[in-house]
Every structure is written in C-alpha cells, then in structure tokens.
C-alpha cells in the first residue's frame, strides 16, 4: 500500500543538550487509515516528533513527506490541513464553545457542519454543554474533548494525538476511544496516538511504534508487540508499565 506519510532518518537535538540527540534515525511509514499508538517512556521526544510531523518544529536532519511529496514542497497550511496535531494541553481560542467549534469553518470559509459537530460533541459526552459558554471556563477534560472535536471538523487524513485522554475520567476516555475508532473507520483517517496506557494502546491501534534510547526501536503489529516484543527495552517497558496499572488486555 502506498504510504500516506513517511519519516526518513529524522534526528532532533535539543538546544540545551547539543552533544546528544533527543532522537535520531527515525524512519517509518503511515498508510491511509492506519491506527498506530506511539509508546515509550517520558522524555523520548514523542511530542517533539509529533510537532515536527505537524510542521510546528523542524528536525535537525532527515525528512518527512506526505503523499510522497517532501514537506519543503508543501505550503505549511495545506500540510497542516491534512496532518492535524492535537496537543496534550488543549488550548481554547477566545470566545464561546461554538466559536471554537466554528474555527475550521471560519478559517477556511467553508460551511459549518453543525449537525456533525453536535454528533461529535454527543459522542465525547458533551451533549449537554452550553455552546454559548466561554470556552475558557470549561474544565480540563471538557477542553480536551472540545479540542478533539474541533480538530475532527477539519477532516484531516492523519491525526497526531498527544495523550488526548490524559485528563479524562475512565468513562469519557472510553467514549473518546470509541469515537476515534469509528471515525477512523468511517473517514479512513489514520492516527498516531501517544499514550502511556497500554490497555488503551491494545484497544485502539493495529500497530505500535516503540521509542527508547532516542530511537524508534519497534514498529510492529499491536498483538505481536504485546505478546512477543522483539527488544529487551520493549519487554521491560511493558513489564514496568503493566506493573503501574496500564495492563494490555491482549
């Protein structure tokens, strides 16, 4: 299958640590509709990798391409319309909940999909929220879900999800997982989802990318990753995370 997105030998150094790369040699592919979780201990540069993939940061070497076309050949705005990053810390734009939901429509002068927005809000458990409420007054979990719905209304082909359920209660988390699975199925949207929750990874992905020691050590099927990880680092990561409660139900 032709790759939707490719990463080729990506390397990133942090300014405060110029002698050792945050990560190096990251090479991988994402196909249309593919559901991937990105696992790894904190500090591996998973968020930085996603920010590079959404053109919010640059790598120090290597390249990324969408539809086989390198990022340098794209207008950043056109790239980001197809590759949408949803940050862990949801930022609400000034104005009401509805103003936030209308952002994509306003930015791109396209009709507001009000019915779809309402369906998505219901799917993430926010059906009873008042759309005229100032978005800044929402709780952390509510902001996170509004931010997700706002991003889905862009209809990107690849979603980069950075711990988007981190501030949600178990019920809301499951609602978001169900929504993203069905959305991916329906819209053929691929996603790369950073999570520390192994049970969630097993539930929502077909493929796991595992980062450790500044490298992408594994890209394997989710079932294989959890049953037969091919590296010691992955084995000990699964063991450690499982002991802390994120047990995969494979």
């Amino acid at each position: 299958m032709t790759a939707l997105f490719t990463l080729e030998r990506l390397t990133k150094y942090l300014p405060e640590q110029p002698e050792q790369p945050l990560f190096s040699g990251i090479t991988a592919q994402i196909t249309a509709g593919e559901r991937i979780t990105l696992l790894g201990a904190s500090g591996q540069g998973k968020s930085t990798l996603m920010r590079i993939m959404s053109l919010l940061e640059t790598s120090d070497s290597g390249s990324i391409a969408l539809d086989g076309k390198p990022s340098s050949a794209w207008q950043a705005k056109d790239w980001r319309k197809q590759v949408c990053y949803v940050a862990q810390q949801a930022v609400m734009l000034p104005g009401s909940v509805e103003a936030n939901l209308r952002t994509v429509s306003n930015l791109h002068s396209i009709p507001f999909e009000k019915e779809l927005a309402a369906q998505l809000m219901e799917a993430v458990g926010l059906s009873r929220i008042d759309w005229t409420r100032p978005a800044g007054d929402l709780s952390g979990g509510e902001k996170q879900r509004v931010a997700l719905v706002r991003a889905l209304l862009l209809h990107p082909r690849l979603l980069l999800l950075d711990e988007v359920t981190a501030s949600l209660d178990p019920g809301s988390k499951q609602e978001v997982e169900r929504l993203l699975l069905s959305w991916s199925e329906r819209e053929h949207t691929a996603y790369l989802w950073v999570t520390h929750d192994l049970a969630q990874a097993a539930e929502v992905s077909d493929t796991v990318w595992f980062m450790a020691e500044g490298r992408l050590l594994e890209t394997s099927g989710t079932a294989d990753f959890f049953s037969e990880p091919s590296t010691d680092q992955a084995r000990s990561f699964i063991h450690r995370e499982s002991a802390q409660g994120g047990v995969a139900d494979e």
């Binding site: 319309k81 734009l93 862009l154």
Partner: peptide
C-alpha cells in the same frame, strides 16, 4: 503561543494565526 499554534494546527495561514 498556544493560541497561535492551535490555529496553525487547524490549517490557518500565518496571518490568520497571528491576527488576534
């Protein structure tokens, strides 16, 4: 910064993102 980057992630042009 968060506001500007959020708009960028939604496909805003630089001018749109920094408008506010």
């Amino acid at each position: 910064r968060g506001e500007i980057e959020t708009l960028l992630t939604l496909g805003a042009t630089p001018r749109q993102a920094i408008g506010h």
